[in-house]
Design a protein around this nucleic acid. Structure first.
Length: 934
RNA sequence: GCCCGGGUGGUGGAAUGGCAGACACGGCCGCCUUAAAAGCGGCUGCCUGACAAGGCGUGCGGGUUCGAGACCCGCCCCGGGCACCA
């Protein structure tokens, strides 16, 4: 029996099968010819003969993926396709384009899989990377294959370790506001520039002093301990409700010895340099919020005999309104200030019903400690606290102010103590109301204003500040505090130092060993990389997720023969102990944009000439960096903040010429999908659900629809592999780009993909006779009208591509195709530009058609069409004529018609509507419309 | 609570203050076909209407303007971020 569909389909139609054949052939061609290799100025990848050698450069990069075992679904490559279209266009427009792709391959899932199966994470990771590469190649993504790497490659993490050592071997000079080599600090100590004490210290004590200045340092400090994961986490990895971002386990504050990076030293620059970046405002805002810089003053309040409570305030101008103070319950001074008995005049509400201050404080502390963060913030509007029995003295006027403890003051921010100014602070106002504390306004509030006034206004009740505006009063007060030794201007940050060690196996080992002093020693560059040793047991010790009283234990610590190592570090062979923590997953992604520039360089992380070419500043004050960095908004704080920090350290030390890693950031949207559940709540395969009358059915049973992520468990995954099989990669690419703007999230709809296939089929048919396979294109010139359309579309497509508006660019190409389709002859004059303009989106099809049009080789370096300005002026203009805002007629005139003539013609066109009424006003908008008012 | 985005046909989405709904999906009709699929052509915002035509339309209410989806004021809803940060 003959399959009808096969016999009836024209033999040379652009079908999925033909697309498959064409695509695989061109992918092989590109790979074989190294078509998308970009030449470097110097080094292994230099190529003076390359068509783009020495051309203006463009460095475009995607946030590289973690190669998961599940492979890609159709949502993952959205951004990759976007940057591929953009870079293919720019390459044709004349740029030397760097568009690399790598893999962020250290991390938890590979390790967890290894724990379950006993397979080494390196094996799983390598397999997953291969799978990803295959899937990406099948989509025709034009990467420079020589520049691909995984963060897990020893040749790569050798440089991650090298950068760690750069950080370790530096300190931040607050005067110069930059990192400097630690050797310069040591020299300064030795020269006696930093006090005489140095000379009296033992060698180990000196090392401790120096270690305390390093940008990477070990500290015993409260950290986020996650027993469920068996590791500590950075602040950025803990959700606001105190759980791990990965795994959603409880996280506890524990004091532990861990590696930290002094990112806080860069707080100012990380905030200020945001202004130089072309990033989405919301992302900048999130970084500003995370860094949380506030400027103000430290003010000293004398308490008791010679005690002092130092507070941080952003409103030193309101000091005359400070009517009480609050310490965090955990504040170290609390015990010191609490007297034996309640002083004279203690109000009943202040005591919490306790007989002595000590009892009240102890009870309140116990209460506060028992509350989780959630509970503390849940009832955040009701202020609680208790009087300590102590009074402090307001340094500006000597007023006696009671000292409270309350959990609305956080131990971890500022100094853990505040001066309370209820007149100008809403929280203080609320507290003052509960505890019947006096309220003094120090900024004039508007007539009839109730509550705390936080706005602008002249100072009042403030002695010598009276009448000054807020900004002026702040400055005056800071000056007064400094002159009188009562305080000083200060800046604080919400940002904490970055916790950099993890108790995991699958991460970069630290290039650090310890000697008998227990102090860290950096390994020399010559000993890099410190390779991750093989172990039998990959898992860190994990615990009952709720059990806070547990201790981390690293997998590497069990490998005794690796931990104890004999080395000659200059003092002859000695036994050292290796650091057994590993680096967090962020380490590898903190600098990968740099390694793409010079991936094969064995001598340097990146050759300065290559860095300067691809990422260097373009003008005085320019930050430099990747020209376009595309990825999801979920990395707004973590990855992007860490990467900026490392980049700035490398800049300070002279290793790079750019002071920001990513000049322009673009957040792509997500492709999401519908999922369907039956009445038991089980997910049913989404592709088998049919819609009838606005309801959804799986077989005969009605199911409910929800919208969200694609996932195996939701049974709604669609893969690019399936799309390539059903339609071809080019159709899939065109569909993803046509379905909406790149930065907008949208639902996946497989049945709509056919629209893109039809479009490509029409283009194919313009060139190829479906019955004979012959090329139909003629050398006949275009008719003048179509020529104008062509050039209008060329101009529009270029504009759209420059702005990453791929959806509207494709709409214009469809329009052009639909214009050409019904014409009796297919003119080369129109088809060649069409093919070239289509090539960023459907590169395989375009290459194939380009060949059929008689050109040899690839079109990747053929000039992108340019519109002829002469063709962009219209022959005639149609003016719609509005009467009172409604279109009532139209006139067609030549574009150079004088305004008066347009007006006359327009009035004539709507004469019937006007019915003799006299127009009050006639507005002629040149080239647009005519508006008549009656 | 505060700060960002965003609300346009059945659906995804277009529109420098100037003809709202480009382009596509879906739907309806037609051509081709014994038939179906594919392909091709037409119609498709809503309401009234046989047609012609008219009215109404960009979350809601006001405003600016000859003219507002876009600008201003006040609300509502959805998504995201932050949340006692002194």
């Amino acid at each position: 029996m003959v399959k009808m569909s096969e016999t009836e389909t024209p033999p040379f139609r652009y079908t999925a099968a033909l697309a498959d054949e064409i695509e695989l052939r061109w992918q092989a061609f590109w790979a074989e010819h190294g078509t998308f290799r970009a030449p470097n100025p110097v080094g292994e990848l230099a190529d003076p003969a390359h068509p783009r050698a020495g051309a203006p450069k463009l460095h475009v990069q995607d946030m590289f993926p973690y190669p998961s075992g599940a492979g890609l679904h159709v949502g993952h490559p959205l951004g990759y396709i976007g940057t591929d279209c953009y870079t293919r266009y720019q390459r044709q427009a004349g740029y030397n384009v760097l568009h690399p792709m790598g893999f962020d391959a250290f991390g938890l899932p590979a390790e967890q899989y290894a724990v379950q199966t006993g397979t080494h994470p390196a094996v799983t990771t390598a397999a997953n990377v291969e799978r990803y590469k295959k899937q990406l190649r099948r989509l025709g993504l034009a990467y420079d294959d020589r520049r691909s790497f995984s963060t897990t490659d020893p040749e790569y993490y050798r440089w991650t370790q090298w950068i760690f050592l750069q950080v370790f071997n530096s300190w931040f000079d607050p005067e110069l506001r930059k990192a400097r080599p630690i050797s310069e600090l040591i020299a300064s100590f030795e020269a006696g520039e930093r006090g005489a004490e140095w000379a009296t210290l033992s060698p180990a004590e000196r090392r401790k002093v120096i270690d305390d200045h390093r940008l990477a340092y070990v500290s015993e400090a409260p950290v986020n301990w996650c027993p469920g994961l068996g590791t500590v986490l950075a602040n950025e990895e803990v959700t606001p409700d105190g759980r791990s971002e990965r795994g959603n386990f409880p996280v506890f504050k524990r004091s532990l010895k861990q590696w930290m990076m002094r990112i806080t030293a860069y707080g100012d620059r990380l905030v200020e340099d945001l202004d130089t970046l072309d990033w989405p405002e919301p992302v900048k805002l999130m970084q500003r919020n995370w860094i949380g810089r506030s400027k103000g003053a430290h003010v000293d309040f004398p308490v008791g005999g010679d005690g002092v409570i130092t507070v941080f305030t952003t409103r030193p101008d309101t000091l005359f309104g400070a009517t009480y103070m609050v310490l965090a319950p955990e504040h170290e001074l609390v015990d010191a200030v609490v007297p034996a008995a309640w002083p004279e005049g203690t109000k009943q509400v202040w005591t919490g019903g306790h007989a002595t201050p000590a009892e009240a404080v102890a009870a309140y502390r116990a209460e506060a400690a028992a509350k989780t963060d959630e509970e503390r913030t849940a009832d955040g509007k009701v202020k609680t606290g208790v009087f300590t029995g102590a009074y402090a003295e307001n340094p500006v006027n000597g007023a006696r102010v009671p000292v409270f403890i309350a959990d609305y003051v956080l131990a971890g921010y500022g100094t853990g103590a505040i001066m309370a100014v209820p007149g100008q602070d809403e929280r203080d106002w609320a507290f003052a109301e509960v505890f019947e504390l006096p309220i003094i306004r120090t900024v004039a509030a508007p007539e009839g204003f109730e509550g705390a006034f936080t706005g602008e206004g002249p100072a009042i009740n403030s002695d010598w500040l009276d009448g000054k505006g807020v900004a002026e009063a702040k400055a005056a007060m800071i000056e007064w505090l400094e002159t009188n030794g009562k305080g000083r201007g200060a800046t604080t940050y919400r940002l904490r130092d970055w916790l950099f060690s993890r108790q995991r196996y699958w991460g970069e080992p630290f290039p650090i060993v310890y000697d008998e002093t227990g102090l860290p020693i950096a390994l020399p560059d010559s000993m890099l990389p410190v390779e991750l040793p093989d172990v039998d047991d990959f898992s860190p010790r994990t615990f009952d997720p709720e059990d806070a009283d547990t201790e981390p234990e690293t997998p590497l610590s069990r490998k005794k023969d690796w931990v104890q190592v004999e080395l000659d570090l200059g003092d002859g062979p000695k036994t050292y102990t290796r650091e057994t923590n590993t680096m967090p997953q962020w380490a590898g992604s903190c600098w990968y944009e740099l390694r793409y520039l010079d991936p094969q360089n064995q001598q340097k992380m990146v050759d300065p000439a290559n860095e300067a070419y691809w990422m260097g500043p373009r003008s005085e004050g320019d930050c430099g960096g990747v020209d376009l960095y595309v990825g999801g908004v979920e990395h707004a704080v973590l990855h992007l903040l860490y990467a900026r920090f490392w980049h700035k350290v490398l800049f300070d030390l002279g290793h790079v010429s750019s002071f920001e890693p990513f000049r322009k950031l673009f957040n792509q949207g997500y492709i999401q999908a519908y999922a369907f559940q039956d009445d038991r709540g089980f997910y049913v395969p989404a592709e088998e659900v049919v819609e009838r009358d606005g309801k959804y059915f799986y077989g005969s049973q009605e199911v409910t629809r929800s919208y969200g992520k694609m996932g195996k468990s939701l049974k709604n995954v669609v893969t690019p592999d399936e799309m390539c099989e059903q339609y071809g990669a080019d159709t899939f690419r065109v569909y993803e780009m046509a379905m909406g703007p790149l930065d907008v999230s949208r639902p996946w709809e497989t049945r709509a993909v056919v629209g893109s296939q039809r479009f490509l089929q029409r283009v194919w048919r313009l060139v190829v006779d479906e019955e004979t396979g012959a090329v139909r294109v003629t050398d006949e010139p275009l008719d003048p009208k179509t020529r104008k359309t062509l050039h209008r579309i060329i101009a529009g497509v270029r504009e759209d591509l420059d702005e990453l508006r791929f959806n509207t660019a494709i709409a214009k190409l469809i329009e052009l195709t639909n214009t050409l389709t019904p014409l009796p002859a297919v003119s080369r004059e129109a088809v060649e530009p069409l093919v070239l303009m289509l090539s960023p989106f459907a590169p395989h099809l375009a290459e194939e058609l380009w060949g059929k049009l008689g050109h040899a080789g690839t079109l990747a370096y053929v000039d992108f069409p340019v519109a002829d300005p002469a063709q962009l002026v219209a022959d005639s203009v149609t003016y719609p004529v509005q009467v009172n805002g409604k279109v009532r007629g139209r006139v067609e005139v030549s574009p150079d018609t004088a305004e008066a003539d347009v007006r006359a013609a327009a009035l004539e066109a709507v004469a019937e509507v006007l019915a003799g009424r006299d127009p009050k006003k006639v507005i002629v908008v040149k080239g647009r419309l005519v508006s008549v008012v009656v």
